[in-house]
């Protein structure tokens, strides 16, 4: 990948990686959700995110000399080449943790898409508009479940607090600015301010106090991941890599 490509378009890979890994995690729920209706809903979120990853990657691959297709980006890179945020690669845990993770990620992602809607690049602004509609539903879904679980029973409230405790360690990383010329420092700061404002409302569902969490972990955007990503990728890529250069 040339340095020019990196500086101009690499945020597409950042967002593609976020969507791909979040989708892969959500798809792990298939057949395991608390009700069949939730199986269907979680599959829906997963399909949307795989589709968005495909579009981000496809757009990047149009100008890449190394990665000629979305599938090459998804299936032919090692963990250290992935630049997703650490939050999305975290194991699902129980349904509560998955809801916490989805609520935090979609709240952040929604604000990023709002920002990208203003891009001077027509393709970027139009896909951001399309994706934002889907992600607004993801956010609504996760907030509905935060309300149910945060206010439901003592056990559900405790589980949501534990879910937030697990996930909060990765929130700091979401403040790192995406490298795209249309995203000025000022606009990014405003975007993150809006995200933090929304985040406070999300935590209020279970009276979660983020100050109790001392750790701030990051490195995902630079390819420094947790052990979880290696396991996820080895399963996801095994078949594709075992049969190089064939059609599926």
């Amino acid at each position: 990948m040339s340095s020019a490509e990196c500086s101009q378009n690499f945020f597409l890979v950042n967002l593609g990686d976020d969507c791909l890994i979040a989708a892969q995690r959500l798809s792990e729920w298939c057949g395991k959700a608390p009700t069949t209706e939730l199986d269907i809903a979680l599959i829906n979120l997963s399909i949307d995110l795989f589709g968005q990853a495909d579009e981000f990657y496809s757009l990047f691959s149009e100008s890449s000399s190394q990665f000629k297709s979305a599938d090459m980006l998804a299936f032919e890179r090692d963990a250290s080449e992935f630049t997703n945020c650490l939050l999305v690669e975290q194991p699902n845990g129980d349904f509560g943790r998955t809801i916490c993770k989805t609520a935090i990620f979609t709240t952040w992602y929604c604000e990023v898409l709002t920002l990208l809607q203003e891009s001077r690049h027509v393709t970027i602004s139009s896909i951001a508009t399309k994706f934002r509609k889907e992600i607004l539903y993801h956010k609504e879904f996760s907030l509905h479940w935060l309300d149910c679980l945060g206010n439901g029973t003592g056990e559900s409230r405790d589980r949501i607090k534990q879910g937030f405790s697990w996930c909060y360690r990765f929130v700091e990383e979401l403040r790192i600015r995406l490298d795209f010329s249309d995203i000025t420092a000022k606009k990014w700061t405003e975007c993150i301010d809006r995200f933090e404002c929304e985040l406070a409302k999300i935590f209020a569902y279970a009276d979660f106090d983020s100050e109790t969490i001392a750790q701030n972990l990051h490195g995902g955007r630079d390819g420094a991941h947790s052990e979880h990503l290696t396991h996820l990728l080895s399963e996801m890529q095994a078949l594709h890599r075992a049969h190089p250069n064939v059609a599926w």
């Binding site: 009700t35 349904f95 149910c148 679980l149 206010n151 439901g152 029973t153 056990e155 559900s156 589980r159």
Partner: peptide, 11 residues
């Protein structure tokens, strides 16, 4: 998923 269904019902 029992705790999720119980919480949804309670809410």
């Amino acid at each position: 998923g029992a705790w999720v269904r119980e919480a949804a019902l309670a809410r």
